[in-house]
Amino acid sequence: MRKQLDIITSAIPGGIKISNDDESYSFKYVSEQYAAMLGYTVEEFMEASNGSVVGIAHPDDLESGIAEALEQYKKADHYEITYRMRCKDGSWKYIEDHDHKVFAPDGKIEHRNLILDKNELVQKTIELESEKKANAAKTAFLSRMSHDIRTPLNGIIGLLEIDRRQNNFDRT
């Protein structure tokens, strides 16, 4: 069964995971592509994650991601969320998780997920937002400085004009 899944998933962009509908969303299957996306072999991935998404997802994203997924489940049997996963080197990578809830004939629920690497896109978005904020701060600073410099300069220019007029008046 695993060999057949490996053959099928090797042709799909991104990675695949199948998990149980339990408290920790324990893995039933993880594709080589999914593990490699985070720098692991499948065996290393299973060990590092303790066999569940809870063991490898970023703690800050886990609670909000599960809440968002449950909210999306209220409308349909699928969700699409983005969260961070721990890579083998200890860094965090943004992934996009497309889940479909499947109801087995025996009544059990499985989650079948397509996992896409969104790290580069999210990082560039964060950098762009930071750059926009920095540019807005620079613009506001220059605007204030321009105003703060203009006011005293206008006063100095006015005093010089008064002095010039006074000197011209004294000469006549």
Rank of each mutant, 00 (worst) to 15 (best):
A134T: 04
I66N: 12
I95G: 00
L128R: 04
E129I: 07
V53D: 14
A48W: 00
T9V: 13
H111G: 11
G107Y: 03
G155V: 05
N20T: 15
T9A: 14
F27C: 02
M37A: 03
E110T: 06
D117N: 02
W92L: 00
R165F: 10
I95M: 00
S24Y: 07
M145S: 09
V122Q: 13
E68V: 07
L70Q: 13
F141D: 12
E47F: 08
R150I: 06
T139W: 05
I109V: 07
A76Q: 15
L153F: 05
G158H: 11
S52T: 11
E47Q: 14
L142T: 12
M1F: 07
D148T: 11
S26E: 03
L114F: 02
S146F: 07
R150N: 11
K133W: 08
I16T: 12
G55D: 04
G158K: 10
L160G: 03
A137K: 10
I7C: 10
S64C: 13
I18F: 05
S64D: 13
M1V: 11
E161W: 08
M1K: 10
E80K: 15
G15F: 01
Y79D: 12
L116K: 06
M46C: 06
R165Q: 14
I56K: 00
M1Q: 15
G55I: 01
D60H: 02
D77Q: 09
A69Y: 11
E131N: 11
K133L: 13
D61S: 04
S24N: 15
A136N: 13
Q4E: 14
K108P: 04
P105M: 00
D21K: 13
E127S: 09
E43W: 01
N50G: 14
P59D: 00
E63G: 15
D22M: 03
D163H: 06
A136P: 04
V102F: 05
R165M: 15
R84K: 08
M37G: 03
G15C: 04
I95K: 00
L114D: 02
M145T: 06
E63K: 15
N119H: 15
S31A: 04
N135F: 15
Q123R: 06
K133R: 14
R164N: 12
E68M: 08
K74E: 01
I66A: 09
V53N: 13
Y34K: 05
S31P: 09
Q72M: 12
F103S: 15
A57D: 04
S24I: 04
K138A: 10
D21A: 12
D97I: 00
T82L: 04
I162S: 04
E129W: 11
A69H: 09
S130E: 15
T9Q: 08
E71Q: 15
N168K: 09
S130P: 07
D89F: 00
R2L: 12
Y79S: 03
K138S: 12
V102P: 05
S143F: 14
P152C: 08
L116M: 06
Y40Q: 01
K93T: 03
